[in-house]
Each structure stands twice: as structure tokens, then as C-alpha cells.
Design a protein around this nucleic acid. Structure first.
Lengths: 131, 131
DNA sequence: TTTGATTTTAGAATAAGTATAAATCCTGAT
DNA sequence: ATCAGGATTTATACTTATTCTAAAATCAAA
């Protein structure tokens, strides 16, 4: 591939992001690395996450929380956060094209992309609620 | 009103947010306060912004940048950021109801709200571009 | 196998925001 | 007016997430 240099540390970080289904933060990636017996410098984890993001092997998610999360799912999709337990799920249903066009018309912008973060109550928390 | 205590500092902060059209960050609010001859503690500015947010006089915007922005426009709306110059504009066209329903169906969530941040090129930057 | 480039490391630095404790300000009952 | 109690402000310390830096380690190629 186009000059991809996957060192031990980058590979380990990539594998964690790939094999996690909960969009871990840098700190969570760090914890899981330690669980697996690695002991990389904090800066290396951040560097690796940035490198992998630049190479488009993973995506950085800014969902309005204090820390960025990372996602190895690359096809265009959005996210939904449970207001009760904080879990993050994928939303595959894509932004309606005609809405994007309406926004372009309204604002005069050439609209490149949309980042959408839904908030709501996840099925599990809905069940736990008022019974 | 419902126990609203607008001190000098809170009023001054509120006025700045209200009279700005660029969704200032806390640091920008601070700068504008200094320009107006005020000299409040940093903590006071943060406290005031939180107080005003709690009282629903302003809204905190988390647009995926490092710092929160503040907006005195209260009706539901979204935002668009210029990828070239960074300016932030309002998007009044609202999230299509049927899309929200599709997302609820797909995820099983009870969808409460959606935060949308569009990215694109603003009219001014479009004009400046390749001429 | 020396040289140069790249990467990792440890730790310092930064940026945004929160917590804390003392000082100040307000308000309302004596 | 005046004092007590609560709320607010202030200055400063702290936290969290992340980036920067400079030295050490690793790799790759001549």
C-alpha cells in the first residue's frame, strides 16, 4: 500500500480499535494495551492514533464529550449516544440528500459533509426505566 | 422571572453573547469583556456561562472544536462550519422528522435530539477560491 | 557499518475547564 | 443602621486531554 509503516505499536493500537465495538478513547486504548502486556508511552498512543487516522485506517469521532473516540468502521455513518448510560452506537441510515441540498441553498455553502450525533435512550435503558 | 439573579458580571457576559453573531468561545467572551473595560476572573466567566446555560438564556455549542462556543439563539437549529476559514453559521432547516424516525427504528433508541454540524465552504471562501 | 531518516520514549508544556477557599457583596430581620 | 447568613466573585490550584520536545532507540540503505 501507499507507504504504510505499521510498527509494532501502531499495529497493536490498530488491532485494539478494530476489535473494539465501543469506540474507545485514547485512555481506553491505553488501558487495553496495558491489559495485553504492552507498555507504550502515552505520546506513542496519541501518535499512533493520529497516524492511523491520517492513513484513513481509523476515524476520529468528536461526539461532544471531552475526549475523542476512535472507530475502525470507515463507511460513512453517524452515531447515537444514550443520555442515560453513555453507550455509543452506530447509525447507518444516511443523511437525506435533499436535506443537505436544502442546507446548501439556505446557507450558500458548498456542503461537504455532516457530522450528526443523536441523543436518546438506548433499548436497554428503556427497559430498565419505569416498570 | 423564575429566580433569575443577573449580577453585573452575568449581565455583561450575557450581553456579549447576545450581541455577537459569531458564537464566541469562553476565551473570546473574556477578550471582549476586557475590551469593554471589565476585568473579571476567568472562573467567573465560566461560571456565568454555565449559569446562563442552566437558566436557558444561552446555549452551549460543542461543534467538535477544542473549545465550546456559546449562542444566544434559542430556537432549535444546527450549525455549519467553513472548512477553510472556520466561520460558524446557523442552519435553520430542521432535521427531517422521517429521518429521525428511521434512526429510531434502526437503533431501537428513543431518539431525543440530534446535534448536527455541517462542514463545507462558505460563500466568501468559494468566491476567493480559483478565480 | 556508518549515515540518515523515522519512531519511540519520558517528561515538560499547553489549553480548556473545574474546584477550592477566602474575600466580598447582598438582603432581610432586629 | 447593623449584623448574620447566603450567594457571588476572586485568585489560584488542580484536572484532563492532548501536543511538543529533545534524547535515545530502531530501521534501512549505501
Amino acid at each position: 500500500m501507499k507507504g504504510l509503516n505499521l510498527t509494532t505499536q501502531r499495529k497493536a493500537v490498530y488491532d485494539i480499535v478494530r476489535n473494539s465495538n465501543d469506540h474507545p478513547t485514547a485512555a481506553e486504548v491505553m488501558n487495553r494495551l496495558v491489559e495485553q502486556g504492552y507498555n507504550f508511552a502515552y505520546g506513542t498512543v496519541y501518535n499512533s492514533l493520529r497516524y492511523l487516522t491520517d492513513k484513513e485506517l481509523i476515524r476520529e469521532l468528536k461526539l461532544g464529550e471531552s475526549a475523542s473516540r476512535y472507530d475502525a468502521k470507515l463507511d460513512e455513518h453517524q452515531h447515537i449516544i444514550c443520555v442515560s448510560c453513555g453507550r455509543v452506537d452506530e447509525v447507518m441510515s444516511s443523511v437525506p440528500e435533499d436535506w443537505k441540498q436544502a442546507v446548501a441553498k439556505e446557507t450558500g455553502y458548498d456542503v461537504h459533509h455532516a457530522n450528526v450525533v443523536f441523543g436518546g435512550m438506548c433499548p436497554q435503558c428503556l427497559k430498565k426505566r419505569t416498570n
